[in-house]
Design a protein around this nucleic acid. Structure first.
Length: 862
RNA sequence: GGGCGAUUAGCUCAGCUGGUUAGAGCACCUCGUUUACACCGAGGGGGUCAAAGGUUCGAAUCCUUUAUCGCCCACCA
């Protein structure tokens, strides 16, 4: 029985080199048209008891361009393709993200070209226009993803602003609100004056900067500050309760310079005695910590910076000035008033908005918050218990630490392009009505408040509030929830572990009572060829599409798989991709050879080994199957790639194909090639499919062919395979000697009948003239376990004398160490038996080689 | 300030729970038109696994300390 189906569709591989662009788009179309990307596209090989496999693709920005981060989705494709071939119902669900604030900024730039701003359009029109802009752009990123060969089910493509997705977000908000997890508060938040919105703590990036710290005269005390422009917002001066210097001042007042307003001197543990003067000006409205102090001491919250970053509620001369200019002006005024005691440079870190780099202004504004403590606790439990597994494991701690320490989450944003928070406020002051109701339906608001008596919330959700619900929102929308939820793997960059992955887990446990995925696989960042971070300013940004157009998609995919480990940064350079292009070409030519050898009308049958080489390659391929399978199952994709690489090139091409030029076994050639194609297909889908397509004996596509199974190798087969290994050792040694001594067609002598009986094979592989079976060796000993010599005259032996001697010394040293090891009883008793046994074998082999070397050197002495 | 990671051949990196004389690709050197492949073949050189201690029969791998680089977190104005 053959595992291969028959057909006559073979198309010869004519091109001498693999040309990716000739094949890729055709193949992709064929895959997609056949339905292979859909969950039951592998119906023919689907096992009835197989577990469904699903991955949700992290949705790229619909307005964005493909970068190396997206290219890393190749890991997801590998898993998807592997599972599909394993006969599991498989779903890789793609989507795109409206990317609220980013898109808004980009689209405003577009508007600016026409001399317009978003205010010219108004909120609703702007939203509609930005949405249209996004929908128009979306096909670009999708086609870029497709060009990378990603076998996602595009028929299920979702968008973060799809109506049903939004409905899910609304339902979650409503439920959370009812459960008391959501509240509205006038609190200090991170405000970006450029984006005109508040942001979550995690979106604040601290950058190290050197600024000036000013020591100011507050009358009774001196204070140190980096923000003199906010002195007008001071509500108190705080000192540490244990600070003897200030003990008697507590309860008295200090005087804010320039405006001569007295403020209380209070004591609070927060103050660091050793910092500055040990006295802190407390500005509740413009500093997060001061805000907390203010709450503890019931201090007034005086705002002196507005939403545009301009000074307000300050003396006229500073009003309306930016924070930066205001600071300078205030310093000048302080100096003139003799209140500036000193100015010193200080290295500190300043919060900036991670998207636009603008310095964050802590301001008090009305925002929506979510209480995260309780929901997060459930996530921590799921991670700690291992219900959610994180690869690499060390990120478990990162995730847990983050979840345990997260403050209430500011979920509202003031940008315009986003999902509006489903709330209506009453416009009148009717005391009988709630100040706001939670609903997305305006009719409800109308019915509740009465026509004209309500207004809609204008804030939108933090983008992570909606994307955090992506797994179940999408699957519910496509009708796949029951079959594919929870998903199996979430594969994403380790940089959004806290921002996104933890949120998904939190929302999912809250809404579905289940984890959203069982395994989180985190990839690191892709750096340039020197391991340096890619950045526009350094000009070392690599565009994956430049590489694929030059070297083919498979080459890029291999480069992003091999040599890259989870959680660690990897490097990508043109040379690496070029190397894998060469590999693809190697495979192509191997296939050209193999397919070219098959007889007319060839129909494969089960491979039966005849020669030692046959047995050897069967064993190698079989081992490859089990190793690659295990590596993929264990998420060791780099190793999986390396194993196939070496199997194809070092084993199959370098040895077996060469051997097959002496004695051919079509079934084994064919079986080996087909198996390698399957093993490589998840990583390099195009070239493998192209070759599969040209193979004579199948009418199905490789993408939906069954993953190979490894079998138990019989003792007889492995004995036969060992014969070939002996041949390889002799051939290699002969080659080395031939090359080093620049011999031409030397004669190989051996006392081993098996080697001698493979005369044609050995001579061809070793480029030897001939091989003779002899009773007694002569000439130059090859140093192999199987006795073999190069027939040589004394001058050559003399020339090799030093080499022989150094080899002898080296071997003897080695032998000594092995013997010492075996003499050590603690070694023989505590090391595993197999390890000890191996040591014994090596000792015996080494001893045998030394004996022959001695023999050889003996003759030289004479 | 705390935490994490990295440090292995000239370069970029593998090396799973400690067990052959430490690997790969590229680069380098020497040969080679053996018709599948020069996007190739054969051979070669190159590493005291950052340093110092420790645990162990055995350490690149585990522990401690140090150094350098990188990342994350953090409320010191």
């Amino acid at each position: 029985m053959s595992s291969y189906e028959s057909s006559n569709k073979a198309r010869p591989l004519l091109a001498k080199a693999y040309n990716p662009s000739e094949h890729e788009s055709d193949i992709y179309d064929r895959w997609e048209k056949s339905g292979a990307f859909t969950p039951d596209g592998n119906k023919a090989i689907q096992k009835s008891d197989a577990n469904p496999f699903s991955i949700i693709m992290p949705p790229p920005n619909a307005n964005g361009n493909l970068h190396t981060g997206h290219a890393m989705f190749v890991i997801e494709d590998i898993m998807t393709r592997y599972r599909r071939m394993q006969g599991q119902p498989t779903l890789w669900l793609p989507g795109t993200d409206h990317a609220g604030i980013e898109t808004q900024v980009v689209y405003e730039r577009e508007l600016k070209k026409d001399g317009l701003s978003r205010f010219d359009l108004g909120r609703d029109k702007f939203y509609a226009a930005a949405l249209e802009f996004t929908v128009t752009n979306r096909p670009k990123i999708i086609s870029q993803l497709r060009s990378l060969g990603f076998s996602a089910d595009w028929s299920r493509l979702k968008f973060t602003l799809d109506e049903d997705i939004i409905a899910t977000i609304y339902a979650t908000f409503k439920q959370m609100h009812a459960d008391g997890l959501i509240y509205r508060g006038n609190r200090i938040v991170n405000w970006c004056t450029s984006c005109q919105s508040s942001f979550a703590d995690i979106e604040v990036k601290f950058v190290d900067r050197t600024d000036e710290i000013y020591t100011l005269d507050y009358g009774t005390v001196k204070i140190a500050t980096t923000r003199p422009e906010t002195i007008f917002a001071d509500a108190a001066v705080a000192v540490h309760p244990d600070d003897v210097r200030y003990a008697k001042l507590i309860g008295q007042t200090a005087t804010i310079p320039l405006i001569d307003r007295p403020v209380a001197i209070i004591s609070d543990d927060y103050v660091a005695q050793e910092f500055g003067t040990g006295a802190l000006k407390v500005t509740p409205a413009h500093d997060k910590n001061d805000y907390e102090i203010g709450k503890r001491h019931h201090l007034p919250e005086i705002s002196v910076v507005d939403l545009d970053g301009k000074l307000i509620n300050v003396p006229d001369e500073f009003a309306g000035v930016s924070v930066k200019d205001g600071r300078q002006a205030v310093v000048t005024a302080l100096e003139a008033a003799g209140k500036l005691i000193k100015t010193t440079p200080i290295a500190h870190s300043v919060g900036t908005h991670d998207r636009c780099g603008t310095t964050i202004e802590p301001l008090i504004t009305e925002q929506w918050f979510m209480r995260v403590a309780e929901p997060n606790a459930k996530v921590i439990q799921a991670i700690e218990s291992g219900e959610i597994k994180i690869i690499p494991e060390r990120f478990k701690k990162v995730a847990i630490d983050w979840l345990a320490n997260e403050y209430d989450w500011n979920i509202s944003r003031q940008n315009w392009f986003g999902i509006r928070i489903p709330v209506f406020y009453k416009a009148s002051s009717d005391p009988d009505k709630e100040p706001y109701i939670v609903t997305a339906d305006e009719n409800e608001a109308k019915a509740y408040y009465g026509e004209g008596n309500y207004r809609a919330e204008t804030d939108v959700f933090d983008t992570w509030y909606s994307s955090g619900q992506w797994p179940y929102a999408t699957l519910q929308s496509t009708g796949d929830f029951d079959r594919f939820y929870p998903t199996i793997v979430m594969e994403t960059g380790r940089d959004i572990l806290t921002k996104w992955v933890t949120k998904m887990a939190m929302f999912s446990l809250y809404r579905t009572g289940q984890i959203p995925f069982t395994t989180v696989y985190l990839h690191g960042m892709v750096n340039d060829e020197h391991g340096k971070k890619m950045s526009k300013s350094k000009g070392n940004v690599i565009n994956p599409l430049d590489l694929t157009s030059k070297y083919g998609t498979d080459a890029l995919r291999l480069a992003l798989t091999i040599g890259i480990t989870p959680g660690n940064d990897g490097s990508l350079g043109e040379a690496k991709v070029e190397g894998y292009r060469n590999f693809c070409n190697k495979l192509w030519n191997v296939a050209r050879f193999v397919l070219g050898q098959l007889p007319e009308g060839y129909s494969p049958t089960d491979p039966q080994p005849k020669t030692a080489a046959d047995a050897w390659i069967l064993a190698r391929v079989n081992a490859g199957v089990s190793e690659v399978t295990r590596a993929i199952e264990d998420y060791r994709f780099s190793e999986a790639g390396q194993i196939v690489y070496s199997l194809l090139w070092n084993d199959f091409a370098d040895w077996y194909i060469e051997a097959s030029k002496v004695e051919q076994n079509a079934n084994i050639l064919y079986h080996s090639l087909m198996t390698i194609l399957k093993l490589l297909h998840p990583i390099a889908p195009y070239v493998t499919e192209a070759i599969w397509d040209a193979s004579p004996a199948t009418d199905s596509q490789l993408i939906t062919s069954a993953w190979p199974q490894s079998v138990t190798i019989t003792a007889a087969l492995s004995a036969k395979a060992a014969e070939f290994e002996a041949i390889q050792a002799v051939v290699s040694a002969a080659r080395t000697l031939t090359a080093e001594e620049q011999l031409s067609k030397p004669t190989i002598l051996t006392t081993d009948k098996t080697i001698a009986s493979s005369a044609e094979l050995v001579t061809r592989l070793a480029r030897a003239g001939k091989i003779e079976l002899v009773e007694q060796g002569r000439g130059l000993y090859l140093g192999t376990a199987t006795p073999a010599w190069i027939d040589a005259d004394d001058s050559l032996i003399e020339a090799r004398k030093h080499r022989l001697q150094s080899t002898q010394i080296e071997k003897e040293g080695y032998l000594k160490s092995l013997e010492a090891k075996l003499a050590n009883e603690r070694y023989t008793s505590s090391a595993p038996a197999s390890v000890v046994e191996e040591t014994r074998t090596r000792r015996d082999e080494t001893a045998a080689m030394i004996a022959k070397l001695n023999e050889q050197l003996q003759t030289l002495v004479n």
